[in-house]
Each structure stands twice: as C-alpha cells, then as structure tokens.
C-alpha cells in the first residue's frame, strides 16, 4: 500500500503543485490519477520514487517513509514507465529490459534470459531481443518499456501517461494487454493519465485531481460515473457518463428474442447466417450486397457494447452468439430499455 499523508509540494516561486494530498493506493490494485494538465497528478506520482521531494507531509510504501531510504535503492524496487518509453537507444531491447537487474548485480546472461522471457509476457516476439529501440514502432517501444519496469519484479509500478503517445488503435491493444498482465502479476500501480476514458477503463480506483493540486474525488470508476462529487467531476467525466456507465453492466441477464424472428427484420433487412448458424452479415431489400456484420456480443460483454451494436446495425438489432460463434439471440432497443429499467428497480429497491 502506498500512503500519501498530508503531502504538499510547493515549487520555488510559490506555485503549489500538490496541496495537502492524503490518499491510499491499495496493494495489488491500479489507482489512476486523472485530471487536467497542471493538476499535480504527475508531481504526485514522481514524489513516490523521489524524483520530486515533497515540501511537507510523508509518502510511505507499506509503512516505510520513502524519504528515509536511499533514493537509488528505493527506485530499483519501483517499476517506472513513462510516456515515450524512454528506452536507451544505444542498448538492444534485451539490455534495456535488463537495466535494473544489471544495476542490482545480476549476471548478464541470467538478466538477458529473463529479459527474453519478459518479451513474451508483454506480447513481443523473442526475435526482437537483439534489435535496437529505433527499429521498433511506438507501440512496441512502449511494450518494451513495460517489460523493463517489470524486470526486477518490483512490488510497485509507477506509470506516467504510458499509452498517450501512441495512436488510438494501438492504445486500445496496449490497455487490454496491460489489464491481462496486471491480472497475472497483481502489482500495486499508480497510473497517471489525462484521459478520463483510460482512467475508467484501467482503474480499480480513480482519483480525480483539479487545478492547484486538490483531490476532487476518489472512488471506483462506477462511483464516479454514477455519483460525481461536484460539477467539476461531473464535467470532467463528461456528458455521456450515463452511457459510459453501461460499461459496468454485463449482458448476462439481458432478455433476447430468438434469432429467427429477425431473419426478416425491419425494412426488408435480413440477417444472413452461414451453415453452422454463425452470423455473416445483413442484406437490405433483397439486394445481393452483403453488409458485413459489425459485431456480435456474448453474455460477458458490457451493455455499452450491446447498445452500440443495436444502434449501428441496419436492423436495430444486436446479435448474441455463444462460445462457438453461433447466433443464439437478438437484442432489440426495446429489450435493452427493459433491462435498464429492471436494473434501476433493483438498485432502488
């Protein structure tokens, strides 16, 4: 657990970057610091590994005050990932990953073997081990950055906007793999981002900062969406927070209608199935052009996805599939609305 106790950071010249911050980052969980620029989120992060020293207050990791430890020794026990990866261009990928183990005196052969193994865990091929960072794409560099932070198996990781410098598609892939990896390793992670969507997607806990280094609200993503503490948080979370809240509801209890009903759907739209019963696409008004199916959902997917599929499909219907990809139900706008109404009654009563 990382604990901030009444931490204040004032820079020379009087700017107060962080003002009397007290927050606990639970062990084994991702805590996201989110807020507009200049809100003190990065300063707070950098005080954990003493890249910035607090003006007053204490930060402790598992009860130990960080300022009482040798800074270099402390940092080697904390994984550090930054925006542009910050890889060493003169070192190969494997030697980049082996940086902290080598500083700790692990022999080179052992450190490199571990590095190659880590490459696999972050989804890169072992053949990348001997390349130089300049030969990798931005997304690949960022994966190497994550592997490098994990190399010495630190209990704590600090991540400063690690996925902001890559394009949205790559970012989405990196975020998913990051969550998968975290499910395996269970690190205590402090994660800084300015992107509320990323915060909601990744955070077990989200701490919303406002200008001047004040904490506006701390809570689970759902709490933030359902019950923002004030106008600032509501505004920051965004106007579509109701829709985004659907991300936390699964389609498990959603009533679906049989697929056959919609073989002849609205306005002459037909759903085409292949011989095994898997959805292939839509045809409109008997035309031979098949519009590829935009997507399907399973019971584990979120209601947000279901709603989006229903809106974007030409028939106003989202197709549910089972584990084999065979269509086994269709959700209409009406069934989604009923499901939401049920959920509301349950939470109210």
């Amino acid at each position: 657990m990382i604990t901030f106790d009444a931490v204040t950071k004032a820079f020379p010249g009087g700017t107060v970057a962080v003002d009397n911050l007290s927050i606990e980052l639970p062990t084994g969980q991702i805590t996201v610091f989110v807020g507009p620029s200049g809100c003190g989120k990065t300063t707070s992060l950098r005080m954990i590994n003493r890249l910035i020293e607090p003006t007053s207050g204490t930060i402790s990791i598992d009860g130990e005050d960080v300022t009482k430890q040798d800074a270099a020794v402390l940092r080697r026990k904390i994984g550090y990932v930054i925006q542009h990866a910050g890889l060493f261009p003169h070192r190969t990928v494997q030697d980049n990953i082996a940086t902290v183990p080598l500083l700790n005196g692990v022999n080179k052969k052992q450190a490199r073997e571990n590095a190659v193994e880590l490459l696999g865990r972050v989804g890169l091929d072992a053949s990348m081990a001997t390349r130089y960072p300049a030969q990798l794409s931005g997304g690949q560099q960022q994966r190497v950055g994550v592997a490098r932070a994990l190399a010495a198996d630190p209990p704590v990781m600090l991540m400063d906007e690690p996925f902001s410098a890559v394009d949205p598609i790559v970012r989405d892939g990196l975020q998913k793999e990051f969550l998968r990896l975290q499910a395996e390793v269970g690190k205590t992670i402090a994660f800084v981002t300015h992107d509320i969507d990323e915060a909601i997607k990744l955070g077990d806990t989200v701490a919303v900062f406002r200008e001047g280094g004040h904490l506006a609200q701390v809570g689970t993503p759902q709490e933030l969406l359902d019950d923002p503490a004030d106008d600032f948080v509501a505004d920051f979370v965004g106007r579509d927070r109701g829709f985004r809240g659907l991300s936390f509801v699964t389609a498990e209890g959603l009533e679906v209608e049989p697929v056959q009903t919609y073989v002849d759907g609205v306005r002459g739209v037909r759903l085409l199935l292949d011989d095994a019963g898997r959805p292939r696409g839509w045809t409109v008004n008997g035309s031979d052009d098949v519009r590829a199916i935009t997507g399907t959902f399973t019971k584990q997917d979120s209601l947000r996805l279901v709603t989006d599929l229903a809106i974007s499909s030409p028939a106003g219907v989202a197709v549910r599939v089972d584990g084999d990809g065979v269509a086994d139900g269709a959700a209409t706008h009406a069934s989604i609305a009923d499901h939401l109404a049920d959920a509301r009654r349950e939470s109210a009563g």
């Binding site: 590994n49 890249l51 800074a71 270099a72 020794v73 402390l74 940092r75 080697r76 550090y80 930054i82 925006q83 542009h84 990866a85 910050g86 890889l87 060493f88 261009p89 003169h90 070192r91 940086t99 902290v100 500083l103 950055g145 490098r148 932070a149 600090l158």
Partner: peptide
C-alpha cells in the same frame, strides 16, 4: 531527456546516469 528521466527513475546513481546513459548516447 525522457531516456535520462527513465535512467534516474529506475535507480541509476549520477555517475551511472552519465556513463551508462548519457555518454553512450
């Protein structure tokens, strides 16, 4: 600078930052 920031943040001491990161680059 981001590579230097990473070097410091990962626990290199000043001489290590200089000779393992800055000079080779």
């Amino acid at each position: 600078r981001s590579a230097v920031d990473a070097a410091v943040g990962m626990g290199m001491r000043p001489t290590e930052v200089l000779f393992r990161a800055e000079v080779p680059m």
